Amino acid sequence: MDLKSKTKQLKQHLNNLKEIYESNNPPKDRKDKQFFRMVKEETSPIYQLLGLWEEAVLEVVKERKVNLHPQQVTSTRENMELLLMHSYYIDVKRKRYMELNNSIHYIFDQLLREL
């Protein structure tokens, strides 16, 4: 899978996560093992894709093919990882959630434009 399709796939996951955030209620018990397993099952492929995406983007950045700083790439991965958890556990205010969501979209869109 090339970088462009990885990025588009992550954008789609990001939109799905936002829907989950807006439509779900936080779990009644934060230590619910069944809920944790369900979240882990649903998010594991996204974590893997995110790791592969970060490696690929850092390689492209190193070759100076895109105008991104390595720290932006790493921050985007970290922000997306935060959103993965916030989307299910709903433990952050909407304003903060949307700031993270928008900053990730910004980097994804910039990357897609430059590719």
Rank of each mutant, 00 (worst) to 15 (best):
D32K: 03
V60R: 04
Q110H: 09
K28A: 10
L115W: 10
R64V: 07
G51K: 05
Y47N: 03
M98Q: 09
K6D: 04
S103N: 15
P26A: 14
K93F: 10
L17H: 06
E114G: 02
K33T: 13
R37M: 13
L111F: 14
E99L: 05
V61D: 04
R113C: 01
Q110G: 02
E55D: 15
E59N: 08
L14C: 06
W53M: 01
Y106W: 12
T74G: 00
I107Y: 06
S87W: 02
A56T: 07
E54Q: 12
N67W: 00
K8R: 15
V61C: 07
S87C: 09
K11H: 03
N25I: 09
F36M: 10
T43A: 10
R77C: 00
L3R: 02
S44K: 15
E63W: 02
A56E: 10
M38W: 07
Y106K: 14
K65L: 10
E63L: 12
K93W: 01
F36L: 07
P70E: 04
K31Q: 13
E19K: 13
L50Y: 03
E63G: 04
I90L: 13
Q72W: 08
E99C: 01
E41C: 04
I90T: 09
E55K: 14
T43F: 01
H86C: 08
R37A: 14
M80I: 13
Q34L: 14
E54K: 11
H13E: 15
P70C: 07
K33L: 14
P45L: 08
H13W: 15
P27M: 05
V73C: 04
V60G: 00
K62H: 10
L83C: 10
E78G: 05
M1H: 06
L52E: 11
F108D: 02
M98P: 00
V61H: 04
P26E: 10
N101V: 05
V60I: 15
V57L: 01
N15P: 00
E54R: 07
T74D: 00
V39W: 05
L100P: 08
N79C: 03
S5R: 12
F108W: 04
Y97F: 15
L100K: 08
M38Q: 12
D109W: 05
K62A: 11
L111E: 07
H13T: 11
F36N: 10
T7E: 00
Y97D: 03
N102M: 12
L68H: 04
L10E: 02
L17F: 07
L68Y: 00
D29M: 09
N16P: 01
R77A: 09
Y47C: 02
V66G: 12
K93M: 02
E63Y: 04
M1K: 03
N101Y: 14
V39N: 03
K28E: 15
L100Y: 07
D29W: 07
K40D: 15
D2E: 09
E42Y: 04
K93C: 01
R94F: 12
M85R: 14
Q110T: 15
I90K: 15
L49F: 11
L14P: 02
E59T: 08
M80S: 04
L112H: 05
Y88I: 12
R64I: 05
K28W: 06
V73D: 03
